[in-house]
Amino acid sequence: MKKKLSLYPYLLTLPALVFITIVSLYPTLYSFYLSMTRSKKGIIEFVGLRNYSIILRSADFRQSLWLTIIFTVFYVLLTVIIAYILALMLNRGLKLTGVYMTIIFLPWVLSEITSGVVWRWMFYQDYGIIQNLLAPIFKGKALITTNWGAMAIVIAATTWRSISFGMLLLLAGLQTVPREIYEAASIDGSNGWNSFWKVTWPLVRPTTIVTTVFLTIQAINGVGMVLAITEGGPGRATEILGLHMYREAMQFYNFGYAAALSVVLLLINIVLAAFYLRALERENALAG
């Protein structure tokens, strides 16, 4: 019986695995080759590592990298802080928890472009609802037309969209902390803040790290929200790496250079994924 079955598991798994290999993995590997070419008037020419040396010398790349770092740091910080507050509140088992979670989750299931359209309206010159609230502080100039303003809007919108991700991950971590531990702490007379730092924090620190790295990976690969809200503007003020790559390929047809950028992005992802898996391992070791 067992012997007759030996091919069966592979017949079930291989279609899926072969499919993702052809459509996802192969193109990713192909980008290594593509990154060593240059196409001129339709003729593909092998140029070795030239595209990478261009990247190293490119001021545009350095600026995009810098903008990606700013975007990532602020987005991740903001998301983790808000997600933490929400997760701690929802962990109390309130009656309406399900309703709150559904609503907080909602932006995630909307397309980046529909969200982008609405966020642009809210910051529209003279009519934007939030723009008008902020106008007295910023002397009437539309925030979205300023370099830092545009970046702040993009960060806020991205946080709004994916706060639920952080919240769910943190909540899952908090729920592994047994209730008795809180109760023991409150009998000891420690207040909420103290019991959080002394009792909860050491237990949820691994989850926090996992969440932080996960959000970082998301941010590095972000492109949709920025494209929908600012298209990288004003000028190049919000042109993060993903968008830089998109523009080089689809607007300037520098496919070799864009492919080299995707390889760089892939390497950044691999490093982050390694961190992520290590953090996961520690978290699981602690939970198990």
Binding site: P27, Y30, L34, N221, A249, A259, V263
Partner: peptide, 16 residues
């Protein structure tokens, strides 16, 4: 593959 972001394969997919 789940962690592989669509962003890093889209340019080669376009070429292919």
């Amino acid at each position: 593959m789940m962690m592989l972001p669509g962003l890093v394969s889209i340019i080669p997919i376009y070429r292919i």
